[in-house]
Computed example of a mutant assay.
Amino acid sequence: MTTTSTEIRSVVVEREIPYPPEKIWRALTQPQLIEEWLMKNDFKPVVGHGFSLRADWGAVDCQVQAIEPNKTLSYTWAAYGLESVVTWTLTPTDAGTRLRMEQSGFRSDQQQAFQGAKHGWQQFFGKLEQVLARVD
């Protein structure tokens, strides 16, 4: 019996962060800040720009898909057979910003990548909040 599951799953992390969208945006789009909380990179906030994220374990190939300053950033995230899209959404709130990250595109046979992303993004968010607390 063969199953033809085309279930595509997403990892979503959402946090209320006590800083304005503009400040969080800088941490999401400035290469030196991205390096502090995510990975080494050659990111440019330009639609169509191809960039890579590099870590000890390897690299992720990315391409900027959409960009709306202080609101939305989306890029492809391809590594080890995973073809996914990471989308950041920034929504101003009374207390700061609701930051939402969705990584979509995990197939049902990519359980390890899915679990790894669920764990990894929690850590990245923690580092991002540390960076935000430190920069002006």
Rank of each mutant, 00 (worst) to 15 (best):
M1H: 08
M1A: 15
T2L: 15
T2V: 14
T4I: 08
T6E: 15
E7N: 11
E7F: 08
R9A: 12
S10G: 08
V12D: 06
V12P: 01
V13Y: 08
E14V: 07
E16C: 11
P18C: 08
Y19W: 11
Y19L: 10
P20H: 13
P21L: 04
E22Q: 12
K23R: 15
K23M: 12
W25S: 00
W25I: 00
R26H: 05
R26M: 02
A27S: 06
A27C: 10
L28G: 00
L28Y: 03
T29D: 06
T29V: 05
T29E: 07
P31C: 05
P31H: 02
Q32N: 14
Q32I: 09
L33P: 03
E36A: 07
G48K: 13
G50M: 11
S52E: 14
L53Y: 02
W57C: 07
W57R: 10
V60D: 01
C62V: 06
V64G: 01
Q65E: 13
P69C: 05
N70C: 13
K71R: 15
T72F: 04
S74K: 02
W77F: 09
W77K: 00
A78C: 12
A78M: 09
A79M: 13
Y80G: 14
Y80C: 12
E83F: 14
S84W: 03
T89K: 11
L90T: 02
P92M: 04
T93Q: 06
A95P: 07
T97Q: 04
T97D: 05
S104P: 02
R107L: 13
A113S: 12
Q115N: 14
Q115A: 10
G116P: 05
W121I: 12
Q122I: 14
F124C: 12
F125N: 03
G126P: 06
K127E: 04
K127Q: 09
E129H: 13
L132F: 08
L132Y: 02
R134A: 14
D136Q: 14
D136K: 14
